[in-house]
Design a protein around this nucleic acid. Structure first.
Length: 561
RNA sequence: GCCCCUGUAGUUAAAUGGAUAUAACUACGGACUUCUAAGCCGUUAUUCUAGGUUCGAUUCCUAGCGGGGGCACCA
């Protein structure tokens, strides 16, 4: 529609002898300013030296409602905007229409998305929750835009952090979990071991060299005793991560591991010393990439021990991904603390595999901050992803304690509502901004929250269930309701969210729609009203839009709550 | 020191360069007793500072100040 209006205007400019200029057709923030509006007159004003109002009027004069039947009114307003109001018939038509597939720049494209990326032997913390939530939502945006998306996850199963964890485990073998112990107990043991190892590494030089030695042996696979700890710990971690992905609703098609990318990355770096891309450090045996040539900083790709660092491994990963399938676009979601690092890695990659680097896009999310300072898994003062989820679930349980739902219904509510609260709190704001985390405030079930949207959905569903079958071709006997105008914006909203890879655009729209529905619902009687049939049609559209919209955010709708 | 991100009501956020800067939370007040009160209605308050670009700046540019992150063998 926006495109059509643009075409109308372009034709008109020609007819009236006005110059062609850049202008926009937008959805006014305030819906009382029309369904669409354009700034063409404001832009033209300077160009041809007439007042914006005069130009707008001359343009409006050429349009009649017969020539543009979708509109009931086209008028000049404010400083010179031209506002378009859709006709009642057009809106009724749109409300009754089912969803059509969206044509976007990603339609038919193959996209690989990498996110979450937790590390075995370490806790799954809130940062991973953020990466997962954003990565999953972005993946879904691509999918609704017609792309074929492959989700993958990268696990850091080798490197100093693993060595620290294993060193810690060895110091406390007496607490080593038995196979029959719960997964939570095993993770607790490993988490504690990592924190201990990490702290000792920094405080004690002797420990430092021990851990470095363990790291080297793990790379070589040369110590069978270490391997026992390693294999158990790795398996437990992966099993535990799986249970979390299941709760969060992500299905990875493939897991990549640093043990796989390390040798590949190392070889790439070594092969490119001769080409001059990498060079030996002047200070040590390390192999480095001088990022200064790209306005960045120098980073170590192979350390003095001859072991590949994260940088080299990531080069290996990029190559592995490109060999895993052919893709048009590769997305990586990480915390923003890796922004600078990622640029250096990409700069190096663009010299080795320019085509792979060119299709790689890095999306970063902000950090989770607490009122009382930063959390760090090294120090162990983290709220882990599962603890947080448990706390949220507990809150839902308290909320529904006195309601008469079956056990099955309760479980559905607990699962869907807790995830909604959590994911919405992450997706409602632009990724890249830090989230100040305060349990009471951040995880809300009221107002600007995921459950609020779900609640609007269940209320609408409840009315529809009570109504039974109704005519799908009802006509509106009253004036167009505000909520209808909001409903028919959904497609444009989703299009924009896809273009900008911005889930928060969908989140903000849904909260507005849910709020509008709640007001409408409180004000307008649906069942038994003379306009009942059409109101039911609106309620049905509301449930459809909310369901599809929440799905983009990775949130499910409960049947009751 | 250098580089990147960021600065909006008391708090947490929204606003594709547009019209009267929008919500939620908190506080206080209210309605209904009708389809789920995790709801609805009402009251108060906001663009860090100084310049610039523009018909128009929360948005873009420059400088300053504040917050976060990064800057060689962690990921």
């Amino acid at each position: 529609m926006q495109e059509e209006i643009k075409k109308y205007i372009l034709k008109d400019l020609e007819k009236l002898g006005y110059p062609q200029v850049d202008f926009v057709v937008e959805l006014p923030k305030d819906i009382t300013n029309g369904d669409f509006s354009t700034n063409i007159a404001l832009v033209l004003s300077k160009e041809i030296g007439k007042s914006p109002k005069e130009i707008a009027d001359s343009l409006v004069a050429t349009w009649t409602t017969e020539s543009t039947p979708a509109f009931s009114k086209i008028e000049t307003a404010g400083p010179g905007f031209i506002n378009f109001y859709l006709s009642k018939e057009y809106i009724e038509n749109e409300i009754a229409k089912p969803f059509a597939n969206l044509q976007t720049q990603y339609t038919g494209k193959k996209i690989i998305t990498e996110f979450t990326d937790p590390n075995p032997f370490k806790q799954f913390h809130i940062g991973h929750l953020m990466s997962n939530t954003i990565g999953e939502s972005v993946s879904r945006l691509f999918e609704i835009g017609g792309a074929d998306v492959t989700r993958v996850c990268y696990n850091g199963d080798i490197g100093p952090h693993i060595a620290k964890g294993i060193w810690g485990m060895i110091q406390h073998t007496e607490m080593f979990p038995q196979e029959q112990d719960s997964l939570e107990d095993k993770m607790k043991y490993m988490g504690d071991a990592y924190v201990y190892g990490s702290n000792q590494y920094e405080e004690d030089e002797k420990v430092q060299s021990e851990i470095k030695e363990i790291n080297k042996k793990l790379f070589e696979g040369s110590d069978s005793e270490l391997q026992i700890y390693y294999d158990k710990g790795r398996a437990w971690s992966l099993e535990y991560f799986d249970t979390i992905y299941k709760k969060l609703g992500t299905e990875f098609k493939h897991l990549f591991f640093e043990t796989q990318t390390a040798p590949i990355g190392k070889k790439i770096v070594e092969d490119n010393i001769a080409t001059g891309i990498f060079e030996k450090s002047e200070e040590s045996e390390a192999i480095i990439y001088k990022g200064e040539q790209d306005g960045l900083h120098t980073r170590v790709f192979i350390n003095s021990q001859g072991l590949p660092t994260y940088e080299a491994k990531d080069l290996g990963l990029a190559v592995m991904k490109s060999e895993f399938g052919s893709y048009d676009l590769s997305i990586v979601v990480t915390a923003q603390e890796q922004n600078e690092y990622f640029k250096v890695m990409l700069a190096a990659l663009s010299m080795i595999k320019p085509e792979v680097a060119a299709m790689t896009k890095h999306i970063s999310h902000g950090m989770m901050q607490f009122a009382d300072g930063k959390m760090s898994s090294r120090k162990g003062n983290v709220i882990t992803g599962d603890t947080l989820l448990e706390q949220v679930e507990q809150k839902v349980i308290e909320k529904i304690a006195e309601r008469e739902y079956s056990e099955e219904e309760k479980k559905e509510i607990i699962d869907t509502v807790s995830i909604a609260a959590l994911k919405y709190s992450i997706l409602k704001q632009a990724p890249g901004k830090n989230i100040i985390f305060d349990f009471e405030k951040s995880i809300s079930f009221e107002g600007d929250s995921g459950p609020y949207i779900q609640y609007a959905y269940t209320r609408a569903m409840s009315v529809l269930n009570k109504a039974g079958d109704f005519a799908p071709d009802a006509k509106n006997l009253k004036d167009t309701y505000h909520i209808e105008k909001l409903l028919i914006r959904f497609d444009s909203i989703v299009m924009r969210a896809i273009e900008e890879l911005a889930p928060q655009i969908v989140a903000n729209y849904l909260i507005e729609l849910a709020g509008e529905f709640n007001s409408w619902y409180a004000q307008e009687k649906i069942l038994g009203d003379e306009n009942e049939k059409y109101k039911l049609l609106i309620a049905k559209k509301v449930t459809e839009v909310l369901k599809v919209g929440l799905n983009i955010l990775g949130i499910k709708v409960p049947s009751k709550m």
